[in-house]
Design a protein around this nucleic acid. Sequence first.
DNA 1: GTTGGCATGTAACTGGTTACATGATTAG
DNA 2: CTAATCATGTAACCAGTTACATGCCAAC
Lengths: 201, 201
Amino acid sequence: MSSLTPTARVILGMLKLGVTTGYDIKKVIDFSTRFFWTASYGQIYPELKRLRKAGLVRAEQVPRGKVKRTVYSLTPKGERALHDWLTDNQEVLFEIRDESLLRLFFSDQLSRDEVIANLRMQEQIFGLVLERFRELEVGVKEGVAEGRVYPYVALQYGLEFMTFARDWYAEKARRLEAGEELVELEDDEAARGEARLGPAG
Amino acid sequence: MSSLTPTARVILGMLKLGVTTGYDIKKVIDFSTRFFWTASYGQIYPELKRLRKAGLVRAEQVPRGKVKRTVYSLTPKGERALHDWLTDNQEVLFEIRDESLLRLFFSDQLSRDEVIANLRMQEQIFGLVLERFRELEVGVKEGVAEGRVYPYVALQYGLEFMTFARDWYAEKARRLEAGEELVELEDDEAARGEARLGPAG
DNA sequence: GTTGGCATGTAACTGGTTACATGATTAG
DNA sequence: CTAATCATGTAACCAGTTACATGCCAAC
């Protein structure tokens, strides 16, 4: 398996895309991968130094005027490490931390109106993110002609996912507002016993 | 905004559902919220003690035989904190960390076959998770009749999301295998310049 | 002249995982 | 008798965020 630290992965990838300084890497992350992969200065700068010590990147001082500025690039070893990671299919990391889902999970504690409010809020949040993605789309699509196809493909995933999530919450909210149940019990017995069964205790 | 730590949120929610020991909380998390909210013993036990000091939960020694065993329950203050958090809509946390998306993002560095392999792998992984969710479905659905509706609703979200993700990767893989492009350029000029434009550098 | 962006960095902290340790009980 | 599971906990570590600090440069 790849021995690169999480932050090293974005860094090497960004260097390969021609992003050269720690500052720029952070900037590019913040309008591209940020929705599924972030990094802060507090990680990027130390990691660049570690990568340099490990021989995966080389550093060059290229000051702009009197502002010191370190330009990084991949060494052959770094290129190899990047490629190895990109093609390594042992255990791929996938993590979601979604507080709204956790709240949904516990929503039997809430009144119908409270649940509706939460669902509508989620609909709105995902809608806003979707809008942000749409704004990105133009710029990212321009990159396609220059060979940066996959950032656009990844963005498509984001657009579709956000659309799915927004619509899912909207639909559940709509049903609750219409007085429908979110879950229909198939079995008649349980269906007759409907309504106000409190949780276990 | 809610001042509960991330781990405190699941704990209070689980206590309200009638899960009483640190051990049980961990067990229940591991087959329910784990896909969008985890916690380890290293967090749960210390957090239970903190919550007790803060007066949100009370602890009672209920040994089973000679095995010491601490049963926790919510105090009125804890109930209030839980409800406040569940209805607090200031800034809700949503985080994804998806390495496969990051790799997709950088996939212009890879050959078509390598990309296909990655996409197929993702399809498979999401398919497996989907199966796991389907296995959970029966048990979780039984809870609905006892008033635990929303765990099942949350699971529905999971099922639909996994289906979406699996199919998305499958479709992209299919297209690449069929020799289609993942992105059609609208503009003719760029379309003629197709193929092998390396990234920026 | 002052705001904002370029550029780099560090220290303190938080949140979380992993591995380890202990010991009782139950099921086979 | 022994493996699995119940039950609790800690220490070491890792990853990551936030806030702070510095100083130059360009634009208004």
